[in-house]
Design a binder for these strands. Sequence first.
DNA 1: AGACCCCACCCGTTTACCTCA
DNA 2: GATGAGGTAAACGGGTGGGGT
Length: 268
Amino acid sequence: MMCNTRLSLSLGLSSTPPHQNNKGKLSTNDDNQELTLCLSTSSEFTNNYDNNRINPQLLGGVNSSVSSFSNTSSVKRERDASSFEEEVENLETKRVLLISPKGLVDHNDDDEEDVHDYGTRKKLRLTKEQSDVLEDSFKEHTTLNSKQKRDLARRLSLRPRQVEVWFQNRRARTKLKQTEVDCEILRKRYEDLKDENRRLNKEIQELKSLKKSQPFRVQLSAATLSMCPSCERTYGGAAHAATDNSTKISFSIGDQKPHFYGIPSQIH
DNA sequence: AGACCCCACCCGTTTACCTCA
DNA sequence: GATGAGGTAAACGGGTGGGGT
């Protein structure tokens, strides 16, 4: 099997390719890849670059190796070829460069359509037709099995991995939208409860003042009071005693306006 | 049982590309 | 027209869990 992976190593400064997420490890997914250790100097990198063998995306990492990769800031990395060459000229001749699979050697067939002249990964923009088909498929099922993925990829002239990634991103978008909807519902519910709380507190204050003005007629604590939402008046704990069959309260969670049946007319 | 591998998925992030001020 | 900011979507790497061996 052709070696698709090379690890280039020389002495000196170190940098991490940008697509390694600044987190380090060089990993390979392909069992057929092998790691080759070789020494490299600036001039070799320049030559490789000119020979279209190094991914400028990686070179961006080289460009900013000293300044950018020491922290996690998402500063846009300069990928301009000329500035890279200037940087390379300025770099010391010996440095450690870890280059991941796409960086040094030939791309496999699948990847070739996605690279620019200088070897950068060209960002695919799906056509309207491709997006429509994927959307339709997503409506049917939000996940794909291997066969569905392969079929869809073949149908759209995409790689299965691209279809897989599209579905992952699509699920993420759906989830994000749903989260936003949920947030809005919760916000509304919170506002409603706040209003309800404000109204009940106001009633408590009114009752307290009523108790003060009519101490012998109103001897009920606020906790034992109930309220008829239809008329917005309160009445006492006798209703809860329910010794009188004519006094019944119908109330359930979610009711906007609970109704009170058979409440003695005198409390109104 | 548990160690290992593979696979699919999620999550956070990076990056290419687009739009708009 | 050039440019930078911000948004969007494709792509990536790492982590995780389930299933098979």
